[in-house]
Simulated scan of single mutants.
Amino acid sequence: MNSAAVAEITGAVADFAERYLVSTEVCVALSGGADSLALTAAAIRSGLGVRALIVDHGLQPGSAEVAERTALAATGLGAHPRVLRVEVGRSGGPEAAARAARYQALDGARDGLPVLIGHTLDDQAETVLLGLARGSGARSIAGMRPWTAPLGRPLLTIRRAATRAACADLGLSPHDDPHNADPRFTRVRLRAEVLPLLEDVLQGGVAQALARTAEQLRDDLDVVEHVTDQHSASIAGASVACADLATLAPAIRSRLLRRWLLQQGATEPTETVVRAVGALVTGWRGQGPVAVGGAHDHRLEIARRDARLVVERRVR
């Protein structure tokens, strides 16, 4: 069947493939939900050879059976399924741990092929709202990119309702993960409560507006990153001259400082840490060193010495 929803999603995948892919063979991260099922069907309909990678997190009773049913559905669509069983750790909370295990499994099984993921426009809107609420910076508010090799998201212009409609039109029975309706998860409450309320108060179009804002912001950030690249020589060494950074725009300076801190072995410097190091450059009042992480046997500190930023290692 070639319904409006099926045609819309197939067209989105075909456009994505023409723009980003050099191979006609891809992997699809197939959860069994409507989004990834519709993506799998559309990828095959658009002429791609599909390997369906089905991750069984083992977090719910019957997960193995769900994975096997999903594999059968993938075979019925014309894909080549493979079930990946993973062990989920605890670092960063259940959502983050499951995501880390999933992406590690996908990367290990993709055999050099790109992996397509079924994130939709609704997922993008939720991501932007989460970034806004957490104050985690422009990169977070800019949301997900359609293509960050080897991961592709062809459905970022497609509403979640369209993927469900496509599955219904194709006679597919998506699996509804109970976690996707569990209000203990922040994203679920955004989906079920916050976005519908915003749509009501602002009279519709909120999800599309959030996704459009993210796209515009990504374009702006690309320019900022390009300018930052042009100043990368100023952070090439083990120490940095404060004068080389002081005259730069704050957005450029903070990005250069973050890159330099990572080069020196800092542990994922937060915005607070980067700002504190930046204050050594532009707000110098004789303050002491800034701790920026380190290894188990030492910690790293950034100090200002003779108008330069230097790295000092303190034995724990």
Rank of each mutant, 00 (worst) to 15 (best):
P154A: 02
V188I: 12
V224W: 00
D182Y: 05
P183M: 12
P196R: 05
L210P: 02
S232P: 04
E225S: 09
S173H: 09
D219N: 13
G171S: 04
L197T: 10
P174K: 03
V201S: 04
D200P: 03
V227M: 00
L151F: 14
T228Y: 04
L217Q: 01
D182E: 01
T157R: 11
P174F: 07
L195D: 00
R184A: 15
D169Q: 07
G152A: 07
Q216D: 15
D222H: 12
L155Y: 06
L210D: 00
T228Q: 05
S232E: 07
E225N: 10
G171R: 05
P174H: 03
C167T: 05
A165I: 04
L172I: 02
A209F: 06
A209N: 06
C167P: 04
A192T: 11
L217H: 00
V194I: 15
D222R: 13
L170C: 03
H226Q: 12
D176K: 09
D169L: 12
P174V: 00
C167A: 10
L210R: 03
R218P: 04
P154H: 11
R189D: 09
D229I: 03
V194Y: 08
V194E: 02
D219C: 14
R160C: 10
L202Q: 08
Q203G: 07
R153Y: 11
L190E: 13
V206I: 05
R187A: 15
R191G: 07
L217E: 04
N180V: 08
L170W: 00
V194M: 04
A165D: 09
S173N: 09
L151H: 10
L170Y: 02
A168S: 09
T228R: 14
T157L: 13
V224F: 00
P150V: 14
R189Y: 09
D200T: 08
I158A: 01
V223T: 12
R187C: 14
S173E: 09
Q216Y: 14
P150D: 06
E225V: 02
Q208H: 07
L221W: 03
A165S: 11
Q208D: 09
T213W: 14
H226Y: 10
L155N: 07
E215T: 14
V188T: 14
E193Y: 10
L172N: 04
D219G: 14
A166R: 02
A162S: 02
L197N: 06
C167S: 05
S173M: 08
R191P: 05
L210S: 00
D222Y: 09
T157M: 10
E225Q: 07
F185D: 07
T186F: 15
L217D: 00
T186I: 13
D169G: 10
V194H: 13
H226P: 05
R164S: 12
D219W: 11
P154Q: 01
C167I: 00
L190G: 13
A161I: 09
R184F: 09
G204V: 07
H226F: 11
A165W: 05
A211M: 00
T186E: 14
A192K: 10
N180I: 06
R218I: 03
R160V: 01
R153W: 08
D177C: 03
L172H: 04
F185G: 08
G205E: 01
A166Y: 01
T213F: 15
P174Q: 00
G171I: 04
T163A: 02
P196A: 13
H231W: 12
